[in-house]
Simulated assay, not measured.
Amino acid sequence: MQKFFVLALMGILLFSCKPYENTKIRKNQITYEDFREKQRLYPTDDGLIKYIDEGKSEKVIVLLHGVPTSGWLYRKMIDLLVENGYRVIIPDMLGYGSSDSPEGFELYNAENHAKRLLGLMEFLGVETWSHAMHDAGGLWTWELMRMAPNKIENLIVFNTIMYEDGFYPPVRMKPGGMAKTAMWAYRNGVTTNTLLKNLFKQGLKENTLNSLDVEGYKKPLLEGKTEAMYYFFSQTCNELPDYSDVFENVTVPVTVMWGIHDTMLQWPPQETRAANALKVNPEDIHFIDEKHFIQETKAEEIAYKIIDFLGQTN
């Protein structure tokens, strides 16, 4: 009888809370399988990194994801940027998306993420580039700018991590058994749907995603990509690094595109401090009518804002 109730509970968790609301598939919608077929391979000492590299222009833009997403987050922006004359590079950072997820803890700190990203750009023969980042991708970017301050020519700041003020992650864990059990549940289908449903509920004004959209977020989790998440939720969320010294030395043009209804990364509590630190012009701060995942519902709007911004700086 007990076994029956356990199985019934697992069934409820697995099937009763789909993380998408819309079942209608959009015309010409890309599948995660198609997205993965476009990815290329970069071998590192820590594991294999997959990345998108589209367009042949000398004007390069990197689009960097956060946690627990991957390059899939930017799928709706690629063609528009390429059509407007950009080479678009979108990595799945180690531990996310299609990239490897080796066992380890410090493998996933900001310093190691930054080193691997610099290695990728060297591998691709790209000396300097424009750079957009989202969520924890900001931490990896600040670390990269500390290591190599002359690599990024223009900076596009989506809802990203800068200060404790405004940082309200949906999950904070202590390292150890409970956190590891939570990761096990995420990757074994027990609470995967629950995690994603809550994420999109907090991250979108209205969850209009369909099954193909969610597949690109769900499949990596079910493939076991939780090592990097474990580091982020149990370490980074509890001890946020201080990058004040990096902000002080930012000299490149900066634009901010922020989902103003975001509850996880809020702009108002850090508005003055962040704008002053990045030395961003008021006209280059754009508030987007969305919560956290502006790339999902406002992809065209922010892509054109990027094009306009880079057109003014080049």
Rank of each mutant, 00 (worst) to 15 (best):
K3W: 03
F4S: 09
F5E: 10
F5T: 12
M10E: 04
P19S: 11
E21H: 08
N22V: 12
K24F: 10
Q29N: 07
I30M: 15
D34I: 01
E37N: 10
Y42R: 07
T44L: 09
T44E: 10
D46E: 12
L48Q: 09
K50F: 12
E58G: 10
H65W: 09
L73I: 13
K76Q: 15
I78A: 05
V82W: 08
Y86A: 02
P91C: 11
G95I: 00
D100V: 06
E103I: 00
G119N: 04
E122S: 12
L124S: 05
L124V: 04
R146F: 00
I152H: 02
L155A: 04
N159L: 07
E164S: 03
F167M: 06
P169H: 02
V171N: 00
R172I: 05
R172K: 12
M173P: 00
K174G: 07
M178S: 04
A182N: 05
V190E: 02
L196P: 01
Q202R: 14
D213V: 06
Y217S: 11
K219T: 15
P220N: 09
K225N: 12
E227Y: 09
Y231M: 03
Y231Q: 06
D245R: 08
E248F: 01
D262H: 11
W267F: 15
A275W: 00
N281L: 14
I285L: 03
H292V: 07
Q295K: 11
K298D: 11
A299M: 05
Y304K: 15
Y304C: 07
Y304F: 15
I307E: 07
F309Q: 14
